[in-house]
């Protein structure tokens, strides 16, 4: 058995082994193996290539850009996704624009331990994917499975553009697979995580699992819910989404991030503009609430969507 977290470690080990241009830079990633142990033993296995950085997110990203210009393929670990805002300027203004302005690619991977866990509070829980997806020039990955955590991270390192790799902390230990994958779906392609014909849930990351639980629950009531795992939110596989909505006629987009704008809004906008005629009911979405992520588990459990609230919203949709 291998966990989602171990898959991330294994992907980095493989990237380091396969490509001398790869190095890892982040707080406590060296001998300590990272705050979550995503780089466990890598500093020992790859001497000089897994380095502890000062607490300087701005410079961590900025230095990765410079190294990429010189031909390296840096992996930057943010200790938590939330702290990437300190490196925001370098990410969105420098890394994201470099190729467009200069024709020089910027192959950096920035790993963001993302999403909520009980008791983590407003600054160790955020889902930042929409923020980065907004900027032209960035690729944003949001793996929901152990297999994707592994293969997409390898792909992220191989891609010639800056990739924001949003790995979900809740999945780190909760998710296990029998083995690492030997083949992978292409980047930018969504996956039908569960087939159905009555309604479509489009989602990504940890919410894939809440949505699958919802589909399971509604199956007991005779409904067949299709669940689409976007895998990358930028690019967003609109074709797979539209094809599913064409089959089901009903759409619910689910995300763990804040509600304003964001991935679910983007999905609804695309389906409404490109597939309006496919819809048998108004499209719906479900997000976290429009407040910072609360600390107390009671509040946190209500702030973000869960299988229960997704099912409730889905029942509303099926009644329309």
């Amino acid at each position: 058995m291998i966990t989602y977290l171990e898959a991330i470690r294994e992907a980095q080990a493989r990237a380091l082994a396969d490509d001398p241009r790869v190095y890892i830079y982040g707080q406590d990633v060296g001998a300590f193996g990272g705050a979550f142990k995503a780089t466990k033993n890598l500093a020992q296995e790859f001497p000089g290539r897994v380095l502890d950085s000062p607490i300087s997110e701005d410079a961590m990203v900025g230095s990765a850009i410079g190294a990429a210009i010189e031909g390296m393929r840096p992996i930057i670990e943010m200790q938590f996704a939330d702290f990437s805002t300190v490196g925001f300027n370098q990410i969105v203004n420098h890394a994201a624009t470099l190729h467009w302005r200069t024709n020089v690619p910027c192959p950096i991977t920035i790993r963001l331990p993302s999403g909520g866990t009980a008791g983590a509070g407003p600054f160790h829980s955020q889902s930042m994917e929409a923020l980065y997806a907004h900027y032209p020039g960035l690729i944003v990955m949001t793996p929901a499975t152990v297999e994707d955590a592994y293969s997409m991270l390898l792909e992220a390192v191989a891609i010639d553009d800056p990739v924001i790799f949003c790995e979900h902390k809740y999945l780190y230990y909760h998710l296990k697979a029998d083995a690492l994958p030997t083949e992978a779906m292409p980047t930018g392609k969504a996956r039908i995580a569960r087939a159905g014909r009555d309604a479509t849930i489009v989602t990504y990351s940890a919410m894939v699992h809440e949505s699958l639980a919802c589909a399971e629950e509604l199956a007991l009531e005779g409904w067949e819910i299709e669940v689409i795992d976007l895998r990358t939110i930028k690019p967003l596989d609109t074709d797979t989404v539209l094809a599913s909505v064409a089959r089901t006629g009903r759409l619910l987009a689910v995300g763990e991030a804040f509600p304003w704008g964001g991935v679910t809004a983007e999905i609804l906008a695309r389906v409404a503009t490109e597939g309006f005629g496919l819809l048998d009911a108004p499209p719906m979405r479900l997000n976290a609430k429009d407040t910072p992520v609360p600390y107390h588990p009671n509040l946190w459990g209500t702030h973000r969507p869960t299988a229960k609230t997704i099912s409730a919203r889905m029942r509303d949709l099926l009644r329309l």
């Binding site: 702290f83 805002t85 609360p294 107390h296 009671n298 509040l299």
Partner: peptide, 24 residues
């Protein structure tokens, strides 16, 4: 903090005790 924020992330800004954010 009313359960909204936890542990060391607390304060009473109006009384001069600022409530830290995590970002160092």
């Amino acid at each position: 903090m009313r359960g909204r924020d936890g542990n060391v992330h607390r304060g009473r800004p109006r009384e001069g005790m600022f409530a830290m954010i995590s970002h160092l």
